[in-house]
């Protein structure tokens, strides 16, 4: 038996089953989650800030920029999204810089369920995945059958990945088992007829969980329930991904792999707009969980405007002069 198995692999279920005493009841879940080590906010933020002072230059910067591009879930989640807009975004995802074909493609295009089909067709066999938000994104305020239908719809339309939101109300009320069961149900709904599954990303909306202790508990809860990725935010609230809350997620996946033997991915989303920001997150990954997570199988950025800044910085590195917004595509 391998030491570590991927959360999206066939062996993960057995590993998770080994934690069944923890997830047996609301009470046992609460005791477990509340027994996780506490988080000192000042210390956490201090560590994140210190890592933020790393100076990533020249070859390291070039590497980081390409890595960051390859990790982007290029996202459009607007009420005004149209097939045309989504197709343009897909084209950009495959060839982010039309003038430089050596630019890596992004990891995925992230859209609402009704746009999955369009995106899937546009991307074809490019290798860029289609991710769909679901479960009454972003508020998550709908009955479970509605949420599951939302998921099934996206999967049926060809989504490779599903980004669900947890029920923050239930979480904050301490109904951990309810949240757990819901994630399990969504995971089940990700299953395709051929018994493969869309990968499940579980969004906590960390900005609404209020405390770092809660983020740590939510991370474990999500992973125990079978999350393939854990994700900070919807991008739709005031505070989205930050270095400290992403650091909590990284510590959680590190400790989860140590304890359960299952490796889970991490996706900060929302508010990451500049190359400088993205590199800070990569440094967090590098120095918290290391190389094992430094690929788009295990780390993603949920972002839209970040890509253009990465492209401009990439052009600067290759040409030596600063680029401008007219030299990257507007979507």
């Amino acid at each position: 038996m391998p030491l570590t198995v991927p959360a999206h692999g066939p062996e993960a279920a057995a590993r998770l089953a080994s934690m069944s005493d923890v997830t047996a009841s609301d009470g046992s879940l609460r005791r477990f989650l509340h027994g996780l080590p506490g988080v000192d906010a000042v210390g956490l933020e201090g560590r994140a800030a210190t890592l933020g002072t790393r100076s990533i230059k020249t070859t390291a910067k070039a590497y980081a920029i390409d890595l960051a591009i390859s990790m982007i879930d290029l996202t459009t989640l607007e009420g005004a999204d149209t097939p045309g807009k989504v197709r343009a975004l897909c084209a950009k995802g495959v060839h982010p810089d039309p003038l430089d074909r050596s630019t890596p493609k992004v990891a995925a295009i992230c859209v609402y369920p009704d746009m999955v089909k369009v995106a899937k067709e546009s991307l074809g066999d490019s290798g860029v995945k289609v991710a769909s938000v679901a479960t009454a994104f972003p508020a998550g305020r709908a009955a479970l059958p509605v949420k599951l239908a939302d998921v099934a719809d996206a999967v049926a339309a060809g989504a490779d990945e599903v980004d669900m939101v947890i029920d923050r109300g239930a979480f904050l009320a301490g109904h951990y088992l309810k949240v757990y069961d819901e994630i399990r149900a969504v995971k089940e709904a990700c299953r395709r007829p051929d018994s493969t599954s869309a990968h499940l990303k579980v969004i906590f909306e960390t900005g609404e969980l209020s405390t770092y202790d809660n983020i740590r508990r939510a991370s474990w809860l999500g992973m125990l329930a079978g999350a393939d990725f854990i994700k900070t935010s919807t991008g739709k609230v005031a505070v989205n991904a930050t270095p400290p809350n992403t650091l909590i997620l990284l510590e959680a996946v590190r400790d989860f792999r140590e304890t359960v033997g299952v490796q889970v991915g991490v996706k900060p989303a929302g508010g990451i707009r500049t190359t400088k920001d993205a590199i800070k997150f990569l440094v967090l990954v590098n120095e918290t969980v290391g190389e094992d997570w430094l690929s788009n199988d295990w780390f993603r950025f949920g972002a839209s405007s970040l890509l253009n800044d990465l492209l401009m910085q990439r052009q600067k590195l290759s040409t030596g002069r600063y680029s401008g917004p007219d030299y990257v595509t507007v979507d």
């Binding site: 790393r54 990533i56 230059k57 390291a60 590497y63 980081a64 590098n286």
Partner: peptide, 9 residues
């Protein structure tokens, strides 16, 4: 470069 090694700064 195939790993994220920090260049001298």
């Amino acid at each position: 470069m195939t790993t994220f090694d920090y260049a001298p700064a």
